[in-house]
């Protein structure tokens, strides 16, 4: 039982990373009906920026500054590379986001170097004991921060004029324009939010592996695609729940694979999200909370 609960707590910590990434995908999807494949690069660049900032200004301030910095990168990328393409078929825009992903990761890769870089978080491998279950501090930190960010997002979309305008624009773009909503600002803000969220996701992806990052950190972000398929492309709640489900499932498979699949040598951990995605696409193509019409991109 303690082993199970330990796996669940680790899974929730991992799920928090997926949730943050998936929220970015969903926010961009809702505002422009495009899946941005640039998210892995933003996550990578964000974490990388933190490794450079932490020695200068400390970890926490470093995360804040990096999130703002990557949000700014998101703004610039959207303005220069995406906005001129509006009106083109969505797969063209999706391919452009792949190009952005490759470019940003290549530039960032030059700053990583040969050895892993330290993110400089205060949690490291420290644990504490909760009713016999060993829990990592870094997982608690990931869950707390993610919860706060989700609540802040909910407040933003519910109470601020621009958040409300973004919801309206997602529902009916032309009607929102007729109210004076600037669709360009909606696009820009969604890219900035996705960039900031990806940065925080990148930080916790690094702390989850003990506090260091290498060139392959971005691979974690790919698992956010199964998450949004599970949760629904256009559902923020789905991103949260989907992230948790996939994170916990993946961690359970990692811990129990020897019991569950004794005939397999390879751990199924890495492919668990994609297996879930396949099942979801077969039985419920629009995901748990997605709108029916957006089942195919």
């Amino acid at each position: 039982m303690t082993e199970f609960l330990g796996a669940v707590s680790g899974g929730v910590g991992l799920g928090a990373v997926y949730t943050l990434l998936a929220l970015g995908f969903v926010i961009i999807y809702k505002s422009m009906q495009v899946i941005s494949f640039a998210q892995p690069a933003f996550m990578f660049a964000g974490a990388l920026l933190v490794t450079y900032l932490t020695p200068q200004i400390g970890f926490f301030l470093g995360v804040v500054v990096a999130a703002i910095g990557i949000a700014a990168v998101g703004l610039v990328v959207e303005r220069l590379a995406i906005r001129p393409m509006v009106g083109k078929p969505v797969f063209v825009i999706a391919i452009i986001t792949i190009g952005i992903d490759v470019i940003v990761r290549t530039i960032g890769g030059a700053f990583v170097g040969r050895d892993p870089r330290q993110i400089g978080d205060p949690w490291g491998n420290q644990t504490f004991d909760l009713a016999g279950v060993t829990i990592y501090q870094r997982h608690v930190a990931a869950v707390v921060v993610t919860t706060l960010l989700v609540l802040a997002l909910l407040a933003f979309f519910r109470w601020t004029p621009i958040g409300l305008a973004m919801r309206a624009s997602a529902l009916d773009q032309e009607a929102a324009m007729a109210q004076g909503v600037s669709v360009g600002s909606v696009f820009a803000i969604s890219w900035a939010l996705a960039g900031a969220l990806a940065t925080v996701a990148g930080v916790f992806a690094a702390t989850n592996t003990g506090g260091s990052m290498d060139r392959n950190l971005w691979l974690v972000a790919l698992a956010a695609l199964p998450v949004i398929i599970l949760g629904g492309l256009d559902s923020l709640g789905g991103a949260v729940l989907g992230g948790l489900i996939i994170g916990v499932l993946q961690q359970l498979v990692a811990v129990y694979h020897r019991d569950w699949f004794p005939f397999l040598d390879t751990n199924l951990r890495e492919i668990t999200p994609y297996l879930v995605m396949l099942v979801v696409l077969l039985v419920r193509p629009h995901g748990l909370f997605g709108t029916k019409e957006v089942e195919r991109v």
């Binding site: 004029p161 409300l164 305008a165 919801r167 309206a168 929102a176 109210q179 004076g180 909503v181």
Partner: peptide, 8 residues
Amino acid sequence: ENLRVGAH
């Protein structure tokens, strides 16, 4: 909420 968007 519709009305509040109208005030944008």
